[in-house]
Design a protein around this nucleic acid. Structure first.
Length: 536
DNA sequence: GGCGGAACATCGTTTGAGAG
DNA sequence: CTCTCAAACGATGTTCCGCC
């Protein structure tokens, strides 16, 4: 067989990957991390015979499929999580030797996975070896309906003959374009192009040879070899189906959170600021911690960017628990890690603590903590922040997300804390707006609340003590905010000051049962002064 | 088998609200 | 202003599990 004939089957083989939905995580045949004790550095030996019982296959396919044996690859890299396998067809003297590991990175709504490793196909009959590189895989729209595509350049090289194939997997352009497009050029040892390939790797592709002949391959028409594996009961702990039993079970039962637990891709630092799962194998919080780059305010109807890179291990933070089944949410604060706090909530929920809002709400849906909630980190605080400051910022976040109003899960009281120094005027305006809505919702119930001089005085006290505070720093701590998209609750909150002003001036403030005229005028002047100093 | 990290379980402390 | 109570969080010890 001339090299020009033998170089093409490996290319076909590379293309003929079954397109798969984006539901399953990467499945290793053998997951290797460190040294396996019993085998002294070797991967445990597994055997999976693939026997075809498809009578429609041609003889060559039968020969190949009947004796395909998967064995472990002896060479491993320490401290790398990698997929490694060796497969051979002894009758036809074909063997495949492969080791693959991944580097992944987040970029907004998608995850890119670079497949790094070696794939070598050896054809004993011809004494030729073909070395493959692999395309990158991209999981797009990971927060909505995920889908997968391949991208990047791949080379197939045959050192003994000098033949070379350059393959390009084209990613879909942002606007228009087609998915799964692939092109390739096959060159001989002199560099002359002997064949071109074009098509869709999951549908059909066309080979155009040097003499003008063409050949089209349709993926759907290719014979399918039915895979046979050992029964689950006979598989060892690290065999593929045993290892991935939980994932398979969860898919069948639609238990979403179980899908996120086992063998997660290790994440590099994401490129976009936001709240991300840590990727630790045993971290239960990752199961409810979906990647997020922003959160919404039900008061301002605006979306606020999360201002840093956070994960389950982040300390000193304000977090949000969002019910998957309804609009209920909970804003909490912890000086420990998100993971520690979620463990406490999980414990309370498992024990159906009747005194705590998070377990009570999960109980109303008859769900456990993992099933009921998702979480995200809204903000991390520097360690030098004292507890008083932290509480104020928690309150501020509770107000702008309305988590203190139904159906929010935080406590219902709406009194201002005793010490309000440091809380920006815009946050107080938000507070007024929330209070107004509550008053409109619960006309009778809250009139008594507001009529009590104590409640009214509290608000007045809150405004009185914030003179010369904050200079409208929004929810940003530290130095005065710069005007930037990455500083979330800053100039946008000025709009809320308008709301507060309108409430006070137009008499809508009457809905909260009327601060006094003097109080209104005083606060309006203050609000105007703030606005005049703010560059919108 | 030892070590370290994560989860689990429990209890103590802090804080805020209400009442007097 | 003080006391009481409950919500919320933190701290700590134990258990489990994966890795070396």
């Amino acid at each position: 067989m001339p090299p020009s004939s033998s170089v093409l089957p490996p290319i076909s083989w590379l293309f003929l990957r079954e397109p798969s939905p984006a539901l399953l995580p990467l499945e290793p045949l053998c997951k290797v991390s460190g040294r396996d004790q019993k085998n002294h550095g070797r991967i445990i030996s597994y055997e999976a015979k693939m026997v075809s019982d498809n009578s429609a296959m041609n003889d060559e396919t039968k020969k190949l499929s009947n004796i395909m044996i998967l064995e472990p690859k002896s060479k491993i890299l320490k401290n790398k999580e990698m997929t490694a396998f060796y497969a051979e067809c002894r009758q036809r003297q074909i063997c495949l030797n492969a080791s693959i590991w991944t580097k992944s990175n987040f970029s907004g709504m998608s995850v890119g996975v670079n497949m790094i490793g070696e794939v070598s196909l050896f054809l004993g009959e011809h004494g030729e070896q073909y070395d493959f590189t692999l395309p990158a895989a991209y999981a797009r729209s990971i927060i909505s309906i995920p889908w997968i595509e391949l991208g990047g350049k791949v080379n197939i090289n045959c050192p003994s003959t000098g033949y070379l194939a350059n393959i390009i997997f084209h990613t879909k352009p942002f606007y228009g374009g087609k998915v799964n497009q692939v092109t390739a050029e096959v060159k001989n040892e002199t560099g002359a192009i002997i064949s071109r390939v074009q098509g869709e790797w999951n549908n059909h592709f066309e080979f155009t040879y040097g003499n003008g002949e063409t050949k089209t391959v349709y993926v759907d028409e290719l014979p399918v070899c039915k895979k046979r594996v050992r029964p689950l009961s006979k598989q060892e702990k690290m065999e593929s189906r045993k290892l991935w039993y939980n994932v398979t079970h969860a898919l069948r039962e639609e238990i979403n959170y179980l899908l996120l637990r086992p063998k997660r891709i290790r994440e590099e630092k994401p490129t976009t600021k936001g709240s991300y799962p840590c990727g630790s194998t045993r971290c239960s919080t990752c199961g409810i911690h979906l990647p997020a780059t922003s959160f919404n305010s039900k008061v301002t109807k605006l979306e606020y960017k999360i201002p840093g890179y956070y994960n389950c291990k982040t300390n000193n933070l304000i977090y949000q628990l969002q019910c998957k089944s309804c609009d209920a949410e909970y804003i909490g604060l912890t000086t420990g890690s998100l993971r520690q706090r979620m463990n406490n909530h999980r414990f309370d929920t498992n024990h159906k603590d009747p005194d705590k809002p998070v377990p009570i709400h999960a109980g109303t849906h008859n769900q456990d903590f993992q099933t009921c909630y998702t979480t995200k980190i809204l903000r991390e605080f520097p360690k030098q922040c004292n507890s008083s400051q932290l509480r104020q910022w928690k309150l501020a976040h509770q107000w702008i997300t309305k988590s203190r109003l139904p159906p929010g899960l935080n406590r219902r009281n709406l009194f201002l804390p005793n010490r309000m120094s440091g809380v920006p005027i815009c946050v107080l305006a938000i507070y007024l707006e929330v209070l107004t809505e509550l008053r409109q919702q619960q006309q009778g119930e809250y009139s008594e609340f507001w009529e009590s001089s104590r409640a009214r005085d509290k608000v007045k006290e809150g405004f009185d003590t914030q003179t010369n505070l904050c200079r409208d720093r929004g929810l940003n701590l530290g130095p005065p905010a710069q005007k930037s998209d990455t500083l979330p609750l800053d100039s946008r909150c000025i709009a809320i000051i308008f709301v507060g002003a309108v409430l006070l001036v137009t008499g809508v403030g009457q809905a909260v049962n009327a601060p006094t005229e003097t109080f209104k005028n005083m606060k309006l002047a203050e609000l105007k002064a703030s606005l005049s100093t703010e560059k919108l």
